[in-house]
Nucleic acid binder design. Sequence first.
DNA 1: TAACTCAATCGTAATCATTCTTATTTACAA
DNA 2: TTGTAAATAAGAATGATTACGATTGAGTTA
Lengths: 137, 137
Amino acid sequence: MNIDEAIECLKENGYKTTGKRKDILTYFNEVDGYRTAKDLIQHLEETYDGISFDTVYRNLHLYNEVGILETTELNGEKHFRMNCTHHHHHHFICKDCGKTKEIEVCPMNEVKKSLKNYMIEDHKFEIYGLCPKCQTA
Amino acid sequence: MNIDEAIECLKENGYKTTGKRKDILTYFNEVDGYRTAKDLIQHLEETYDGISFDTVYRNLHLYNEVGILETTELNGEKHFRMNCTHHHHHHFICKDCGKTKEIEVCPMNEVKKSLKNYMIEDHKFEIYGLCPKCQTA
DNA sequence: TAACTCAATCGTAATCATTCTTATTTACAA
DNA sequence: TTGTAAATAAGAATGATTACGATTGAGTTA
């Protein structure tokens, strides 16, 4: 998802477009990988001196709700990244730089067969490790 | 893993066997599913009035390190369950009662092919939903 | 079995991420 | 341009987890 799509998405859901919201979108659009709330706060503080935690967390959750961001948990902290809307897939996630690589394999069809009486609401398939760049660094 | 194996595992790693450690093992052995630190504290307080958080968290992490417990993150809280040592598999996890069902499918062999220059350290494949019992409750 | 030693535990304070609260400001519709 | 609901500020509160100095106890050794 790019910035324009995200702003459109906000409007569709009846949310306003503020400078900070745009900056948050720009940030995630540029970094292209998983980042924590703290990472974002640090970035925003360069522009806005003493930004409110509330603003950051509220917007992160809002973005997650409307589908602009997706989230995962890495060593005890929530991480966010721009959502990939195109099609269903999973991710390899670099533990060092947070960057991701798409994985096309999804075993859910096969798995469903062995969960006949179970109500499946969600699933997570993530591979963790080091990307080529971070192995040499 | 059963209680005796767990105690053996503690000894092998040079850790002592205390009453509280046994009780923690008994707890996880009985509940057979994912539980939070808070769940465990509540249980232990029935026996030991005012147990130290330190004791609980230290032992949970210790157990996780030596492989007695495995851990996952469910709605923002760490959850623990007795480790299944027999063979590699994944879990369906009931969001309501925390119980798990083993899933034999593991797509990692296939996935590795598309991650040639990546160093794979770990992976997580979990299915979330409601078990048959919790759907009717 | 006594005493020794280091691990384990206690009790509580501190920390860290996150959420809440009230007052103020701002986007944008009318 | 103005009115109003939404967004933000500022910082206190919360909830899970970790840290710490003092004390207790398990398992070893004499």
